[in-house]
C-alpha cells in the first residue's frame, strides 16, 4: 500500500462561504465521502481543510488578500489515502464533493526516498 495525497481544488467563482443550511448539507457530503473511504480502511489522514480567506506573499515583498482573482482554481484542502496504485487512488477520489461544483481533485503519491 502506498500513500497518496488527494488535493481538492475549487473553481474561483464558487469559493465563498456557503449559507448555514447549505453548509450543513455540504458537511454531510464530505463526511459521507470521507466515511466511505475510512470504511474501506484506506484513510491514512483526514488532512486539513483550508479556511475561506488567506494572504499571499510575493517575491517583491507585497502582501495581498488571497490569490483568488488570479487563479482559475484554488486549493481547498487535502487528505491522505492508502491505495495499491494510482488507479485505486483515483477510484477513491471519485465522489469527492468538490467535483459536484466544478472543482477538481489532484492525486499525488507521497514522495518516498528509495531505501538505501
Amino acid at each position: 500500500m502506498k500513500e497518496f495525497v488527494i488535493l481538492f481544488r475549487q473553481p474561483t467563482g464558487s469559493y465563498q462561504k456557503p449559507l448555514p443550511e447549505a453548509m450543513e448539507a455540504l458537511e454531510k457530503k464530505w463526511a459521507d465521502w470521507t466515511g466511505g473511504i475510512a470504511a474501506q480502511g484506506k484513510l491514512a489522514s483526514q488532512g486539513i481543510r483550508l479556511a475561506y480567506d488567506g494572504r499571499v506573499l510575493k517575491s517583491s515583498g507585497v502582501v495581498t488578500d488571497g490569490p483568488f482573482a488570479e487563479l482559475r482554481e484554488i486549493l481547498g484542502g487535502f487528505m491522505v489515502v492508502r491505495a495499491a496504485d494510482y488507479d485505486e487512488a483515483v477510484t477513491l477520489a471519485h465522489g469527492c464533493p468538490v467535483l459536484e461544483t466544478g472543482g477538481s481533485v489532484e492525486i499525488r503519491p507521497i514522495y518516498q526516498e528509495s531505501p538505501a
Binding site: A38, A39, Q46
Partner: peptide, 15 residues
C-alpha cells in the same frame, strides 16, 4: 456518528 468514528479509527465491525 459512524463516519466520525471511522475517521478516528478503522475496524471491520465499524465499517
Amino acid at each position: 456518528l459512524h463516519n466520525q468514528l471511522l475517521m478516528l479509527q478503522y475496524s471491520p465491525a465499524l465499517a
